[in-house]
Design a binder for these strands. Structure first.
Lengths: 224, 224
DNA sequence: GTCTATATGTAGATAGAC
DNA sequence: GTCTATCTACATATAGAC
């Protein structure tokens, strides 16, 4: 919903229905392959094949490869930011105190909910973010897509720990985000470590568990 | 120290001194570029240029690109595993109880110590691991290089939380690992979020802070 | 808007002289 | 062990017909 959203250039009039579908198929395909193989690991040809269109159409709708990547990341980032801020507004409106668990929940739950009960693309998205975070080259994307929302939450959190060093607070928040992403990207690793034991475990239980972990982390590191 | 360690094939006799230096320069260069740009983002040509040798030598000493990548990851993984297991042995020998903070410290401190007071390559290594973790294709590398040590620590930790679901325990451990990696790879993000405020903060303080966070997370999520 | 054909660069890998 | 030269494949991107 922010900037990067126009197909080729300045749209003169409404694009055709077919055009929009083609564009969506291309972005979906790009998202899958970028998440799976990273930026260089996914070629424009792969993306075209995955979308079932000729290569030239990928360039036409997505622009150059880097722009396509940025568009793909921004598309879901905007949806996610919206959900998180709405959850925060709802929590504020409810009148209940904005305590640590509630704040962390407003940030963490929207993503886990989308990943669990929605399309599988949202699970892949965590892997995409992991690629973005692991690669310094994409730092501008992080700053544009994720930092504004993060700033809102850090601001709220700092109200709960008055006088605490902001850098420590931000660090605890970054730890929490990375734990959240690892839950999405490394479930296989968790299951491998646990071996045969352990129940299947449903999505809600995982969310509560993760939030409990982060909450305890905050309190322990920053003081109750 | 494990398997992947032979230069070209089966070494017939001792390699020359110059050969070893060349090989080391190539591996160092590959490590830097793989960490910075990922597997596909770093070309064999880039690596050769960084090492100051012709391309053919990279193939000669490192083998095919995938083998080179695996070698680079394994090399430091082995050193790291050794430090961690030594720290664990030392803690056991000290007679003091192996409580949560000590165990987490044995896993976390060796890496942070290497990253802080050693070569800058160790900081880059966290980014390399982030790439490995973000990409399912490298799962075999994770299993071979990291899982054995992780299993030892999960086993120890499970002794502190008797009767707890192993999967939850493994999850808390994975959260801790990802927080540790994020401290290395995303310090810039933490500082950006904190804005102007916040002291510089030294390495030891960060280690204590991180371990405090993870300890609180474990206790809160799994029960004291 | 869509597709075929192609221009231009760079990738990984190796052959073979030294 | 080292290096030059080169093979082959595939990358991104676009021109131009429909």
């Amino acid at each position: 919903m922010t900037a990067v959203d126009a197909p080729p250039r300045k749209r003169k009039r409404a694009p055709s229905k077919r055009s929009l579908e083609t564009r969506a198929r291309i972005l979906d395909a790009a998202e899958r392959l970028f998440a799976q193989n990273g930026f260089e690991g996914a070629s424009m040809r792969d993306i075209a094949a995955e979308a079932g269109v000729p290569v030239a159409l990928v360039n036409f709708h997505g622009g150059a490869k880097e722009a396509l990547f940025a568009t793909v990341v921004a598309r879901r980032a905007d949806v996610l930011a919206q959900h998180r801020l709405q959850a925060l507004d709802a929590a504020r409106a409810s009148g209940a105190p904005l305590d640590l668990a509630v704040l962390l929940g407003c940030f963490i739950r929207p993503y886990l909910a989308l990943a669990a009960s929605g399309e599988p693309q949202w699970t892949a998205y965590a892997r995409l973010i992991a690629h973005v975070s692991a690669d310094e080259r994409w730092r501008p994307i992080s700053e544009r897509c994720f930092d504004p929302t993060a700033a809102v939450f850090v601001e709220e959190l700092s109200g709960l720990f008055p006088g605490q060093d902001t850098q420590r607070l931000a660090a605890a928040f970054v730890f929490s985000i990375s734990a959240m992403l690892s839950l999405a990207t490394s479930r296989w690793r968790i299951e491998a470590m646990a071996g045969a034991s352990g129940q299947p475990a449903e999505a809600d239980a995982w969310a509560d568990f993760l939030i409990g972990f982060c909450e305890g982390g905050f309190r322990s590191a920053l003081g109750a």
